[in-house]
Design a binder for these strands. Structure first.
Lengths: 163, 163
DNA sequence: TACATTGCCGAGTAAATTAGTCAAGAATTC
DNA sequence: GAATTCTTGACTAATTTACTCGGCAATGTA
């Protein structure tokens, strides 16, 4: 399993979406501001999330993104896989041609590890994350705007969000 | 836990060392040839492994590397940590300042995952890997030279190894 | 003592990836 | 028709990876 900031950003953004779910679509600008992620970068990530039906979008004023299905049916592994495409730790990507068309010495080790990481992350849903102790507190702090100091706002123009 | 080819190379090389242990030091040139890793790159990795006392070296003709301690006392996590320095999946490296000096929304998730991966890899020794079913077969194939076709030999000059 | 062998070290580098920016356009609502 | 929001694609700076290259240091053997 490749674990990069790309995947982290995606999971964080999806969790933000899950937390603010219910009151209509959420704009990427909001997520960008709350989570301190560049808007343009989020756009790229959400393009991939949308292809996998993990989110659905509404255009126009009042538009934004909503979860593609309920939070309990979206798993962390799916989110990471959507943005990282490459989801294993082997050199060969599951094939056995890591070295000169043969299996390398440590192939099985990485294969096992990949499976374990995947299984772990594939059992944690966004709903599970929401229920965790720390998450609600952090979310509330973010809504109060306490964490929007040094955020890179990208091409965000109006700060009409009040706050 | 950062899992890159760098760490994979290191573990593979260490396992090669463990397999060929007992008959005096092993040269990096041998490992490079058997495992299809660039010699100069191996030198860099082994410099770090040596700093952590995972290997010890002997200079001069007949010299090379030996394991720093017995194979059952060297764990995969230690090898990866030695070459990758950065051994966690959080953005902040265990501190809680992932976002504007505050903890980001998914901090705990990555922290948990890091711990799990670490625990898993920290319980697997080189000896364990040697005992695995596939490893011996692959090692034998490599010793017969079956896998030295398209290897990049780096600055290896003489092929006096006689195959 | 010469020299061949091996490790040791630091600088440099091409390719890939990450983490973005920028600009234009399409759908939708007011 | 104007503002808002998603959609798409091209481009780019910084970083990391996976090396290469060259020279020096230690050591064994002739």
């Amino acid at each position: 399993m490749r674990l990069t900031t790309k995947g982290r950003y995606a999971v964080t953004a999806m969790l933000d979406l899950a937390i603010h779910h219910g009151g209509g679509p959420i704009t990427l600008a909001d997520i960008a501001q709350r989570q301190g992620i560049s808007l343009s970068y989020l756009e790229q990530l959400f393009a991939r999330l949308r292809k996998r039906n993990l989110v659905s979008s509404v255009r126009g004023p009042g538009g934004g993104y909503t979860l593609g299905r309920e939070a309990s049916g979206i798993f962390v592994a799916q989110v990471i896989a959507a943005v990282d495409e490459n989801v294993d730790t082997t050199r060969c990507g599951g094939a056995h041609n890591c070295q000169d068309n043969q299996q390398c010495l440590t192939h099985d080790l990485w294969q096992d590890l990949s499976n374990r990481i995947y299984d772990y992350l594939n059992q944690i849903s966004l709903q599970d994350l929401m229920n965790r102790s720390g998450v609600q507190e952090v979310a509330e702090r973010q809504e109060n705007g306490d964490a929007r100091t040094s955020v890179s706002l990208g091409r965000l123009k109006a700060e009409s969000a009040g706050a």
